[in-house]
């Protein structure tokens, strides 16, 4: 058989040159991400696709730990909406978190993250639900009155049109006033993943300069 292991890739594999051309990543960085992807996607089910349990295991070292925000991020990474994350989805989604990714992409991703019910708006009930979820996660105890006060104050700052929902334009305005809202949308690790993770054995098949 002439088949080589070298050509066996995970389902949804895309050429690093293609992904590098579409994202801020270099070809070498995409290849490094592929090494990470293979580890994540084979940690529980060896099918080369990241299942939600594998995502949770990677984030929390616990496959059964549910978390509202991890669920939302998984769902946004799962672009094809088929319950798993393939390599192309992994790279394209992570690219939004690259320090060199356009700020507008980060703004839109964060907006979609908070738009829990995917209505195209962030609603007050969604904001309160997220605050309560965070309190539950952190085991912080705040009275109902304090939660209402926090949500109210944030809502007054954000819902500048006063129509009871936050649209993308209002979200953009809020973020411009408080840039730290996007702090988690940038992962410094991604700036040069090949140096940050020297354990990855890299043997680039294509020089970055070739693309």
């Amino acid at each position: 058989c002439f088949c080589s292991k070298k050509n066996k890739h995970t389902p949804g594999y895309e050429e690093p040159t293609v992904l590098a051309a579409e994202t801020p990543f270099t070809v070498s960085e995409v290849e490094a991400l592929y090494e990470l992807f293979k580890k994540l996607s084979n940690s529980i089910i060896s099918d080369g696709l990241i299942h939600k349990e594998e995502f949770q295991l990677a984030l929390f070292r616990n496959r059964n730990r549910r978390n509202l925000f991890a669920d939302r991020i998984f769902d946004l990474f799962d672009i094809k909406r088929n319950g798993v994350i393939d390599f192309g989805e992994f790279v394209r989604s992570l690219s939004v978190f690259h320090p060199n990714a356009p700020i507008e992409d980060k703004i839109k991703f964060a907006f979609r993250l908070y738009d829990l019910r995917q209505t195209g708006f962030i609603e007050r009930e969604e904001l309160k639900e997220m605050v309560l979820a965070l309190l539950h996660e952190s085991e912080l105890v705040l009275s109902e009155d304090v939660v209402e006060m926090i949500v109210d104050k944030t809502w007054k700052d954000a819902d500048t049109k006063g129509d009871g929902k936050i649209d993308l334009e209002e979200w953009r305005d809020l973020v411009s006033k408080s840039p730290s809202l996007l702090k988690n949308m940038t992962l410094p690790y991604l700036k040069d993943i090949t140096l940050s993770f020297p354990s990855f054995v890299l043997r680039s098949e294509v020089e970055d300069t070739e693309i």
Binding site: L40, S178, N184, L187
Partner: peptide, 25 residues
């Protein structure tokens, strides 16, 4: 100082911290 609820969420939720994808390897 009052903190924004979104800031509260983004800075405190472990589910929103993707650096763990790399650190836990």
């Amino acid at each position: 100082k009052f903190f924004n609820a979104f800031e509260f969420i983004s800075s405190m939720s472990s589910g929103f911290d993707l650096s763990n994808l790399f650190e836990n390897k």
